[in-house]
Amino acid sequence: MAPSVAETVTTTTEQVSNGLAKINLKAGEKQDNGPAYPFYLPYWDVEEKFPKTEVFEVEDPGKRANPAKPNLLNPSTKVNHLSPYIGTEITGVQISQLSKEGLDELALYAGERKLLVFRDQDFKDIGPERQIEIARHFGPIQRHPTSGNVKGFPEFHVVYRDPEHDQFREYLGTDRANLTSWHSDVSYEKQPPSTTFFFLLEQPDLGGDTLFASQVEAFNRLSPEFQKRLEGLKAVHSAVEQAEHSRKRGGPVRREAVEHEHPLVRQHPVTGEKALYVNQGFTRRIVGYKREESEYLLRFLFDHISKGADFIVRASYKPGTVVVWDNRVTVHSATVDYPAAQRRHAVRLTPQAEIPAEVTV
């Protein structure tokens, strides 16, 4: 049994720099400004390889959910909506204690509200096995082809930054003044993710939040005639640049980069809502358009999404926060607005879902 988040961890781990360092401390404690959760430090093995992802059958758990959500929300639950279009903060619910029916209702609620911010989660009962068990309820977990994962648990995608390791600048380039980068996680997969879990392990005193935007409301704000022009179009989502960047840095490419075509406008399988499905991170071109036509339209859509202040919310973090969102109908971006001397550490579990569906109604 691997340790829970709160158990004592004595481990030899490959540091972010790929150098070896022994860390001996209890989770939640700091020693010489070391990480509070060394078990979850990012691990890279350039020899690690994953097989090609095969297409799988999937039934969205939200289709089984009771719309009243009695197994998720109880009389002691406090719900605070962050905006009319996206985002709900929830206290009084322990994700680790939810039944299968409660997890079904969580899938439905994430689809309806796009983003859920769970507060005061008790990490002592939610070690890596239970975290993975919960995420698998929503679909097979994507194993990231290039990012750092947790040694022995390749299902985790690790987000880590400390005074010596700035993954955002390394990934995006040091010549960029604005490090905001809107994306939907691994949208290049044939079956991109749906209900996604983000466990905050360590957070700066101030800053380091995540911006989330509703792709549903972004679509709704377009004129009916423009919406008609977009429906039926497809765009290429690509992992090629991500893989090439990892190779150049001496990092792993655990499986060859893929590219897939997805509808520019997709329909949520449970709520039936229509949403834009483009993002700066992975959408490269519109199928059938000349390059300049594609670039012009995508640039407009990217700007339309990123400037939609009234359908964008800022998810703030504090100890015990777990964020859940539906990748099919949202985009998000980290905000690198905190001092370089402070650490930010989180892990993500990313269940894959159905092949994106074109609009049918």
Results as ranks from 00 to 15, higher is better:
237 H>L: 13
169 R>K: 15
208 G>K: 08
190 K>A: 14
313 V>H: 00
64 R>Q: 10
218 A>E: 04
69 K>F: 05
120 D>F: 06
110 A>Q: 11
197 F>N: 02
185 D>T: 08
135 A>Y: 00
229 R>P: 00
292 E>F: 03
155 E>A: 01
7 E>W: 01
300 F>H: 09
235 A>E: 08
112 E>P: 00
111 G>T: 06
92 G>P: 02
233 L>N: 02
307 K>V: 04
25 L>Y: 02
213 A>D: 01
221 R>S: 14
29 E>R: 12
136 R>G: 03
67 P>I: 05
262 H>R: 06
16 V>S: 15
5 V>D: 00
308 G>K: 02
157 H>K: 07
180 T>C: 06
236 V>S: 12
180 T>L: 15
63 K>R: 12
203 Q>Y: 03
218 A>F: 05
74 N>K: 12
34 G>D: 13
7 E>F: 02
28 G>V: 11
110 A>W: 03
226 F>R: 10
277 Y>L: 13
209 D>G: 01
289 Y>G: 01
216 V>C: 15
252 P>W: 05
318 K>W: 06
157 H>M: 12
198 F>D: 03
240 V>L: 14
291 R>D: 14
303 D>R: 10
121 Q>P: 01
8 T>W: 06
341 A>C: 06
343 R>E: 08
212 F>N: 09
106 L>I: 10
54 E>Y: 06
279 N>R: 03
208 G>H: 12
236 V>R: 14
255 R>E: 05
56 F>L: 05
300 F>G: 02
182 W>N: 01
101 E>P: 01
196 T>H: 02
92 G>I: 08
65 A>K: 00
313 V>E: 00
36 A>G: 15
246 S>V: 11
55 V>H: 03
67 P>W: 03
243 A>T: 05
177 A>N: 13
209 D>K: 02
235 A>P: 02
9 V>Y: 03
236 V>Q: 09
248 K>T: 09
180 T>P: 00
242 Q>E: 15
100 K>A: 12
229 R>W: 07
257 A>Q: 04
224 P>I: 11
258 V>D: 01
149 N>G: 07
132 I>F: 00
318 K>L: 11
48 E>H: 03
247 R>W: 11
241 E>I: 04
263 P>M: 10
234 K>Y: 15
227 Q>F: 08
234 K>E: 15
133 E>T: 12
46 V>I: 13
171 Y>I: 08
66 N>M: 07
336 V>Q: 04
321 T>S: 14
93 V>T: 07
306 S>M: 14
298 L>P: 09
225 E>L: 14
